[in-house]
Design a binder for these strands. Structure first.
Length: 922
RNA sequence: GGGCGAAUAGUUCAGUUGGCUAGAGCGCCUGCUUUACACGCAGGAAGUCACAGGUUCGAGUCCUGUUUCGCCCACCA
């Protein structure tokens, strides 16, 4: 410790790792079994097990850890469950790519060999991501860690599937799904990302079979014409409806297809004729079903034209597009080509253009599941912050579509359905059935497909607690308290978790959802690998410290708003860490010099500290030293190092105690409101500007005085300790470290009390008094600066007041004023002539004169005072007009009117004094 | 096409139920090796609160419209 104490600047290296290990070893990450009261539970949104930590994780995890640590210190059994996600497609892609780089085709080696490799990869990367999360300081209960594809979670997924299947909510159908020709799997609607593409609209002529001319269809995808099975016009289209029933010759083929009437065709759009390709377009699919059209598939799953395309077979879909257009043009069947901007779906994982593709998939019916989930949010049983997301949620839930849950992948939960070779029976079962229940046949084949990743994550509030088994954890910790996540997965995950919980647990999954912003770069762009604008958080932690990163993220993150991140923002956190460190060094250095006792080793502080229960503001005024000692006991467990008398608590001590309790109160209120940034910012401001800039400066002479330093050290150490407590949820490492330095501290800060205060702030009179000191000091500093007084030149400050009462109020602060304004001394006079020559200014009812022989430039001084006077007069003009307005005095609340009157009086006095000063200058 | 969000100092953002002589960090200017801290201290400059109307005694805040930027949703050929 000695070594750290001697650091000239705070360097977090080593300290952070040390405390994380110490907390873990002490078993502080799990819920404290001795605590009663409502548990506070969060399940960590599981990061991709093969991924690495990014800034988004840092923000979300910092918020969660802040909440968890706060709740833990408040005395609730706090549980934060870690876990990782198998991330089906993402992981399969990575592993396939690795294999491809070695020249291995995954389809050649087969499912089992591929999975073995994937599991190995998972085992390697799992340690990396969890290690990174530890670096952040997250107080997760690692003994309860879960993985979406581990044994227990497998059972949960199977159970969920079978229950839904038995209920008839899961069905299998041949349907047009979003197909990724690159990854060769179906994906859900939500995994499709639409991008605006500048394409073309080709007008193609389809000759009528009877030779009487042609119809012109407009399309963005001519290559799908080989799958056309009709041309549609609107049934009420006056100009075209008479063609319904006729046949057209499909160019480049020998097929004839009918012209049908369907309202899908809009007479106002395109040419009024639409080619219908039921196997390759979602709208056409619907049209095809309505008219019982044949579904002609003209591509392979990989997006290559098949035999339906005749001479074009074997071409890729985009090559074929060019070729078809050229061929039609040659035949005179290309009417025209227009530029056309439209939205094209891409796979959000690999970026390839989605192909609507006809295939047999598994679906989950959603409307029945959605109903209770919509109700829960509408009725406020689950609260969303910020509230505006309720609208987005409702809109999606009310238009919910069935969820395609099967994926043609290997890395995932294999669908627990077996097909009987004998009778085609479909058996959904929790374990592999021995024989077919229908025909008794013993030859059963399991479904090849796996489930969508989100089919395991939607169980995430209860599967980590042991569901479907009846576990004590489930009873105790479900529903969970808060879900913290970014809003971009509100549909993928949040909405589905709500549905799953009501379906399987018949209760809500969490009481509230806290949506935080997305971390962007300093130009507002999303962080992405391809842009290379995503910093590695671990490198940032190495350089700035985890506390700095957490502090900056939490403090600078307005609720739910995206944040623009640049490394400069980390300096705020880092500098603040150093500030706390330096202040501690100053106070403890003096403590050691003074040789104060460390306190009794057996002292134990209460686990919960509600400061208002110690006494009221009046009690504080009456016996401040007694209550101070009680507060000390509440914080440290023992008694103060010296016996304090009421008189030991001076103006500045009482002021800082008042401010401290006010900060405790504001911090708690903001935490309750989930305004984490305000909570952190309030403590930051208190500590930096009030505690360091004013209080520590004010007590320096007393710290050097052997007679006086005992009592003032007690106040300073208490101020440090309470500040650490308030800051600990956001900056766990440095606060734990510095807490351990405080001689009277016992045990870990992490599971000590988080002070609460809901009472009326004590020492209001002293607070006002100190604020007057601050104002006068500010005025003198300003004056000195404007006059260009040498910093080393001290001299006397004369404070002229109108009467004895004001003078009496001031006397107690004179020494402080002289100290803080760097004057030789300060003196109060009642009335009397202007000292001259002197620089002069006004602070409230106090006129301030700095007699400065030869220093004052008369003209400059006059100009300065005139400028100030003009500003005040201008303001007073407006204020008088306002007060003269009867409507204002009649309508505005009394306190507002009174405030205006007070301000006016104050400014009038000040203006009067400024005029007198000007007169005195001649 | 529909919805949501943002617009306040050079910049990044606070500003909660209307009471504001509009704040903070960074940056800028001036001064300071004051025995915790230059990752610091003190002082200062800097704003038509996007625009136009309206409600009100009073609008950064509420209402209507407009502009610009961003995001989400939607099957438009």
């Amino acid at each position: 410790m000695e070594e750290i104490r001697n650091m000239s600047q705070y360097a977090p290296g080593g300290i952070e790792e040390k405390w994380y290990a110490a907390w873990e070893e002490a078993g502080l990450f799990g819920p404290d079994p001795d605590l009663e009261g409502d548990p506070f539970v969060i399940t960590l949104p599981p990061p991709n097990v093969t991924g690495i930590l990014h800034m988004g994780h840092c923000l979300g995890n910092s918020i969660q850890d802040t909440l968890i640590r706060w709740a833990r210190m408040r005395g609730q059994p706090a549980l934060w469950i870690p876990g990782t996600d198998h991330a089906s497609i993402a992981t399969e892609q990575v592993v396939s790519r690795q294999m491809a780089a070695e020249g291995i085709d995954k389809r050649e080696v087969g499912r089992d060999a591929f999975l073995e490799r994937a599991w190995n990869w998972k085992d390697q990367t799992h340690g990396r991501i969890t290690q990174q999360i530890r670096r952040l300081g997250c107080s997760l209960d690692w003994s309860r860690e879960a993985f979406t594809m581990d044994e227990a979670r497998n059972r949960a997924v199977t159970e969920a599937f079978v229950l839904l299947k038995e209920k008839g909510l899961i069905y299998r159908d041949v349907y047009l799904v979003n197909w990724c020709p690159h990854d060769l799997t179906a994906i859900s609607d939500d995994e499709v990302e639409y991008q605006e593409i500048e394409g073309h609209l080709w007008h193609l002529k389809y000759p009528l079979a009877d030779g009487g001319g042609h119809v012109t269809v407009a399309t963005t995808r001519p290559e799908t014409m080989f799958g056309d099975t009709a041309v549609a016009v609107h049934p009420n289209d006056p100009e075209r409806k008479q063609l319904i029933g006729k046949m057209v010759k499909l160019p480049l083929t020998d097929r004839e297809i009918p012209i049908i009437g369907d309202h899908h065709a809009d007479p106002e759009k395109g040419t009024g004729f639409v080619k219908i390709t039921p196997a390759h377009d979602p709208n056409d699919f619907e049209v095809g079903r309505r008219h019982d059209l044949e579904q002609v598939i003209c591509m392979t799953p990989a997006g290559v034209m098949n035999e339906q395309a005749g001479a074009f077979a074997g071409l890729g879909r985009s090559e074929c597009r060019q070729a078809v257009v050229e061929a039609l043009d040659k035949d005179g069947l290309l009417d025209k080509t227009e530029k056309h901007v439209h939205q094209v779906g891409h796979h959000d994982r690999c970026g390839h253009v989605i192909e609507p593709y006809l295939s047999r998939q598994w679906f989950l019916k959603m409307d029945e599941l959605a109903a209770p989930a919509v109700k829960a949010v509408a009725e406020g049983e689950i609260k969303l912050f910020p509230e505006r997301w309720v609208g987005v949620y409702d809109n999606w839930m009310n238009n919910i579509r069935d969820w395609c849950i099967s994926r043609q992948l290997w890395w995932g939960h294999r669908i627990p359905v077996w097909y009987c070779d004998g009778c085609d029976e479909e058996i959904a079962a929790r374990t592999a059935p021995a024989a077919c229940p229908a025909c008794g046949g013993g030859k059963l084949t399991q479904e090849e497909d796996v489930l969508d990743t989100w089919f395991s994550s939607w169980l995430w509030t209860f599967s980590p607690l042991g569901w479907p088994d009846q576990t004590p954890d489930q009873e105790k910790f479900h529903p969970t308290s808060v879900l913290v996540t970014a809003p971009d997965i509100i549909f993928f995950w949040v909405a589905r978790m709500i549905m799953a919980s009501y379906e399987f647990k018949a209760e809500k999954p969490f009481a509230e959802v806290l949506f935080h912003g997305i971390v962007r770069d300093d130009q507002g762009r999303k962080m992405s690998k391809s842009l290379g604008n995503s910093p590695d958080p671990i490198l940032l932690i190495d350089e700035y410290g985890s506390d700095a990163l957490r502090c900056s993220l939490v403090m600078l993150t307005p609720t739910g708003q995206d944040i623009f991140f640049s490394e400069a923002t980390l300096e705020v956190g880092r500098n603040f860490c150093n500030k706390i460190f330096q202040a501690t060094k100053l106070v403890l250095g003096t403590w050691e010099e003074a040789g104060l006792p460390d306190g009794n080793p057996n002292d134990t502080a209460p686990r919960i500290l509600e400061i208002e229960s110690l006494g009221s503001a009046d009690d504080w005024a009456e016996r401040p030293a007694g209550l101070f000692a009680e507060l000390w006991t509440g914080v440290f467990g023992g008694t103060p190092p010296v016996e304090l008398q009421d008189g030991d608590l001076r103006l500045e001590d009482r002021w800082i105690l008042g401010r401290l309790l006010d900060t405790v109160s504001g911090c708690g209120a903001n935490m309750e409101k989930r305004r984490l940034n305000d909570a952190a910012y309030g403590v930051f401001n208190f500590f930096r500007h009030e505690f360091c800039d004013w209080y520590l400066e004010a007590i320096k002479p007393r710290l050097r005085d052997e007679q006086e330093r005992g009592p003032v050290l007690a106040t300073a150490v208490l101020g440090l300790a309470v500040s650490y407590k308030l800051l600990h949820p956001v900056m766990p490492f440095i606060t734990e470290e510095l807490w351990s330095w405080l001689p009277p501290s016992r045990g870990f800060l992490m599971n000590s009390s988080f002070p609460g205060f809901r009472g009326k702030t004590p020492f209001q009179r002293e607070c006002a008094g100190f604020e007057q000191v601050m104002e006068i000091v500010g005025a003198i500093r300003n004056l000195r600066n404007e006059l260009g007084v040498q910093p080393g030149k001290r001299g006397r400050a004369i404070l002229r007041v109108p009467g004895d009462a004001v003078a009496a109020e001031l006397t107690g602060g004179l020494a402080l004023i002289a100290l803080l304004a760097k004057m030789e001394d300060a003196e109060v006079v009642v009335g009397g002539p202007d000292p001259s020559p002197a620089g002069a200014t006004v602070a409230g009812a106090v006129e301030i004169f700095l007699p400065m022989e030869g220093l004052v430039d008369l003209d400059k001084e006059k100009a300065r005072l005139n400028k100030e006077l003009a500003g005040i007069e201008n303001w007073m003009k407006g204020c008088r007009a306002k007060l003269a307005n009867e409507k204002f005095t009649a309508n505005a609340p009394d306190h507002v009117v009174q405030k205006q009157k007070d301000l006016l009086a104050e400014n009038e006095t000040k203006a009067g004094k400024l005029r007198e000063m000007l007169d005195a200058l001649g």
